[in-house]
């Protein structure tokens, strides 16, 4: 049984290593608002900011071009840069939408991107970063299902920005927002499948 736990709530009367919990005075308490099922998976936070990790896929907009170095706006408060390597041939201009991977996270919250590619046309939507994993689904099930049933091209950024193009855009957007809203419920892939099938007819 999954329960919602709130900060400061007792998780275990003994010191136990649980993700997103802390130990004080020999007892374990939750430090976030999250879901906890009592097993070893830790507390899954319901809200929170994105914490950049190497190899994350991100979607953003080029906000500045300076001497072949591109500054990308990932709606993250640190700086994010694309520094082209010897064999990279980037030619972005301000306002271009790009998808990239995180190469490295440096001190002072600077994020270095790699493998950047241009996303032409399309629409951007913003979701809560903590819900992105649910939108992608286990082994990409959720997102590939939405993409297939609406015939939309979708790129999901871990920073909470999602790019969509073509197909039934409105339905795909609606489905993604529904996943975001109901991320903490179970059997969601089936619910969304049913939702898409009834709506797309």
């Amino acid at each position: 049984m999954r329960n919602i736990v709130t900060p400061g709530e007792l998780i275990a009367p003994a010191p136990v290593m649980v993700k997103n919990a802390y130990i004080e005075g020999g007892k374990t308490y939750s430090k976030v608002l999250g879901m906890y099922d009592g097993a070893g998976r830790g507390i899954i936070p319901l809200e929170g900011a994105w914490c950049p990790t190497p190899e994350d896929t991100v979607v953003g907009m080029i906000s500045e071009v300076k001497n072949k170095v591109y500054v990308a706006d990932l709606s993250y408060f640190g700086r994010s840069l694309i520094v082209p390597g010897k064999y990279d041939e980037y030619n972005f201009s301000e306002g271009d939408i790009i998808a990239a991977k995180i190469k490295d996270v440096e001190s002072r919250r600077t994020v270095i991107l790699k493998e950047a590619e241009l996303l032409e046309g399309g629409t951007l939507i913003r979701v809560k970063p903590k819900k992105v994993l649910r939108i992608i689904g286990k082994k990409d099930t959720m997102i590939s299902q939405i993409a297939a049933l609406t015939k939309t091209q979708i790129v999901v950024g871990m920073n909470g920005i999602i790019w969509l193009r073509g197909g039934n855009l409105a339905l795909a957007t609606e489905a993604i927002f529904r996943v975001e809203r109901e991320a903490h419920t179970s059997g969601l892939t089936e619910t969304i499948k049913l939702f898409l099938e009834t709506k797309s007819v």
């Binding site: 900060p7 400061g8 802390y22 308490y29």
Partner: peptide, 12 residues
């Protein structure tokens, strides 16, 4: 409000 922002806290 702080709890709903996901910022880790020791207590409510």
């Amino acid at each position: 409000a702080l709890a709903t922002s996901g910022i880790p806290m020791r207590d409510l």
